[in-house]
């Protein structure tokens, strides 16, 4: 845990932090508004006493209530990973600014977050699906995207509420008939 980093971040990012800086083990975590992400990334990348120059990861997160974009950064000046959480992105119309102005490699990572969560990154010039086919319409890693079956929980059928109730009514009634294959002649 890098106490010194906390003081430096507080001095540089005064006014941007939504909640106090949280530190645990080897990670330092700050939460910012999505609109402030470009400013915050620019500061932690450029400031001479921060120099977070390696973008370790960019991930989307769906908490069930809001969306988040989570950045992990590495700096030679600190022994901690820095985690920046752009919190409070609306689930109905998820939009966040792109990080491609600083890290060009964020382009594909944002494409992945768009593909999986539907987060629109404003400023990314190539925001299209990357894994799923272009005519696919769902966003698979959202929490309301339910798997029809769950191998880890399957022994108790009905324990897992997602299995039946969310299927269309006519399919749920005839689920066995629908999945059973025609017997080989």
């Amino acid at each position: 845990m890098d106490r010194n980093l906390k003081a430096r971040l507080e001095a540089r990012l005064n006014g941007y932090l939504r909640v106090p800086i949280y530190q645990r083990q080897d990670q330092t975590e700050i939460r910012v508004d999505p609109g402030n992400v470009p400013d915050v990334l620019r500061i932690v990348h450029d400031a001479v006493d921060l120099r977070f120059e390696i973008l370790a990861d960019l991930a989307g997160v769906d908490t069930g209530e809001v969306m988040q974009v989570v950045y992990h950064l590495w700096s030679p000046m600190s022994s901690d990973w820095l985690r920046i959480i752009a919190d409070g992105i609306s689930r109905e119309d998820p939009r966040a600014p792109s990080a491609t102005f600083l890290w060009q490699g964020a382009e594909w990572l944002e494409r992945e977050a768009y593909d999986m969560f539907g987060i629109i990154f404003e400023g990314n010039r190539d925001l299209r699906r990357i894994f799923m086919p272009p005519d696919y319409t769902s966003f698979p890693l959202r929490k309301d995207f339910l798997l029809p079956d769950d191998a880890a929980r399957s022994p108790g059928a009905g324990v897992r509420h997602v299995e039946r109730t969310h299927l269309p009514a006519d399919l749920a009634d005839n689920l066995d008939a629908a999945v059973r294959r025609a017997p080989a002649s």
Partner: peptide, 19 residues
Amino acid sequence: LGYLHRGVEKICENSDYYH
């Protein structure tokens, strides 16, 4: 890309920690 995509992150969210 995507020809080998199998959604392993979603699978892991639906598996317990050992799996």
